[in-house]
Amino acid sequence: MHTLSVQTQSTAITEPRWVRYTLISITLIFLSLFLLIPLISVFTEGLRGGINKYFAAMVEPDAIAAIQLTLITAAIAVPLNLVFGVAAAWAIAKFEFTGKSLLITLIDLPFAVSPVISGLIFVLLFGLQGVFGEWLAASDIKLIFAVPGIVLATIFVTFPFVARELIPLLQSQGNDEEEAALVLGATGWQTFWHVTLPNIKWGLLYGVILCNARAMGEFGAVSVVSGHIRGLTNTMPLHVEILYNEYNFIAAFAVASLLAILALITLALKTFVEWRVQTQVLINDPDVAS
């Protein structure tokens, strides 16, 4: 016990032991109630009917269609927002121009909008009564209550993730290395590929992980534009909702547990990347090394 307290006390100034233990206990109880128990319940509820029913819920055709649609949606939304994020971060972090802070605020806008409204705006654009509604109907193109609408709404809600990870990262790295590459005769693209990209790869991955998690898990916005057509326009979260509302709790939680696993993988990757970035910053810090 004594050695433990020596290890933990890096400084003589801290709270009395009883205060520390009380605070730690309250924290653990609070987090268990609000985070841990809900997480565990997803798996136990899903397994309530035994392992066979659990897996049966996942291989059912509608579930498979939902999984496929979720993967397709993420596969379109994430790369698009990735390219945008890199372009936006390059313009914002590497150059000084008027209107920059306004641009940053506008990029963050989708985070401030309720998911329901994120869906609504696309209904207003492409729905039957929407601005392009009549024209789309005449051309026999269906965007709302169809896959394109789901993809659009997903792109909207995951829009800022990559950009907002990269902007501060690029800003903190300064322009020195890029300038050095240019002086050495590299072209703009060569500079970006060989110098900038390797330096931001972890931040990029971080943004992509978060963007992907949201893209696969988005519910509100997608719910508005989907039309809930089984096997066609249901993503995994929507499929969970339908099963739940039909009182098919075991199947609902079984599919939900897949999404929970995705969340756990996201958290694990995120923690790993954070650790990588931290150690990288530490060893790259010239003040520490010299």
Partner: peptide, 19 residues
């Protein structure tokens, strides 16, 4: 442009490519 000037430039904080 800086690419075509054929200058060697040594930066204050070296700007070595860290990776």
């Amino acid at each position: 442009s800086v690419r075509d000037r054929q200058v060697g430039f040594v930066f204050q904080h070296y700007a070595l490519f860290r990776h």
